[in-house]
Nucleic acid binder design. Structure first.
Lengths: 228, 228
DNA sequence: CCGCGACAAATCCCATAGGATATGGTCGCC
DNA sequence: GGCGACCATATCCTATGGGATTTGTCGCGG
């Protein structure tokens, strides 16, 4: 337990179930726990060094996300997920995220735009410097701020779920993604400043679909959908 | 505990956390627990007659759905949800469900079409007879079968989430919904039989948006978004 | 009168133990 | 070899307890 607790920053650190949930997501997306794998709560508790209670809570959260499925009295299984599923999901994500960008283009005031520029600048700076951990976080904050600026609270949450399928730091290492991201952000910000919803939408959709392609390649590489 | 356990059919009955989750969803959508309401796990456990453990697991599942939000060390709150949120969510639902119908139009074989017709006939029969409980279940099965027929597993799950926002039996009582549903299903089945994706998509989108309007009216009626 | 700090009570969060129940495997039997 | 009954194992839930943190109250000083 010490290992897990110590990694979490204090303050308003998420509780244990949420951290266990994150750990399990990472292990699934890393190809460590592939679809069809049986998950035994007690076993996982021992592996993670916590009691069964928070593990079961985390598994319930993952079940609500259809990341795992519950087999009453038999445990849990990692939910099936193939290439077509990922493509479908990210098509939806791209559409919604584009819609949010378009709305933001019409709703942003000067202050909000300045905030977005600042966050984008942080991303650019980290790309220049090469700090992978903070870069993912900065990119996340940029998108979160943009989605929030759209004013569509629930849709913003919905697209935030896409992050559940993004293994940590897997795209920040790709040179292609870095250069594409800088360009996409600039196009996006220009469109937002100009109040041009269509361009903002198109730029954002392209940005998300780039991420999708990278994710598919990653899952391919770790043998995610090799038959069990 | 007896009350909850006895209501569940044996066999592959969902486990207790899932049933508690359902109960909480119903109470939220009934306007009993409005957005902003604090939820105390221990209190809920006493109210529902179960121990705190499955209640906490249910709350974690609801958190993953953004139905409630966790305040570390302080409990949980019912997540904010206003009219615009519901409209946005169901716009997305309508789009995706329409897409699934369009795909099904191209993928259905004779056997699958016959199965869908059978399920639609069940719905029609129950509408004639007037069995509200079974009707909701039959309607659910019809849509589930159609979504499954599209072949898009993950999108089918995603739209299945819309049911989380549908209070049980709230639309089966509406005469307007019944007549509209019979017509919508027929149009849908004809389009599927003819292999006409565009008509299928349009019919399905309209069907979902009808449900959305009913839901908004329901939430209105129970004072869901009256300020706290 | 109002803000503010300390103490007390309540509550959450997690661990642990234990019992009821269902599953899967194994052995004996036909 | 196929089939049905026992048995070990694991899940699921209950109950309990303790550590940690938040909230509410009280008293004090400004």
């Amino acid at each position: 337990m010490v290992a897990l607790v110590d990694t979490g920053l204090l303050g308003d650190a998420p509780a244990l179930p949420e951290r266990v949930e994150l750990q399990l997501r990472e292990r699934i997306l890393a190809g460590d726990l592939r679809p069809g794998t049986f998950l035994r709560p007690d076993r996982l508790a021992v592996e993670l060094g916590v009691s069964p209670t928070p593990v079961r809570e985390a598994l319930q959260a993952l079940r609500a996300d259809d990341m795992v499925r519950a087999l009453p009295r038999r445990g849990f299984v990692v939910a099936p997920l193939d290439r077509a599923d990922v493509v479908d999901l990210f098509d939806v994500q791209a559409r919604i995220t584009g819609e949010l960008a378009a709305r933001a283009a019409g709703a942003l005031d000067a202050e909000g735009l300045a905030g977005l520029r600042a966050r984008a600048a942080e991303v650019d700076a980290l790309i220049e410097a090469g700090e992978p951990g903070d870069l993912a976080q900065a990119e996340r904050r940029f998108h979160a701020a943009l989605n929030r600026a759209s004013g569509a609270r629930k849709l913003a949450w919905l697209v935030g779920r896409a992050a559940h399928y993004l293994p940590p730091r897997f795209y920040t290492d790709r040179r292609a993604w870095r250069t594409a991201t800088v360009a996409a952000h600039r196009t996006l910000l220009d469109a937002l400043a100009a109040g041009d919803p269509d361009t903002a939408r198109a730029a954002m959709e392209g940005h998300v679909l780039d991420g999708r392609d990278l994710l598919v390649a990653h899952l391919e590489a770790v043998g995610f959908w090799d038959e069990t």
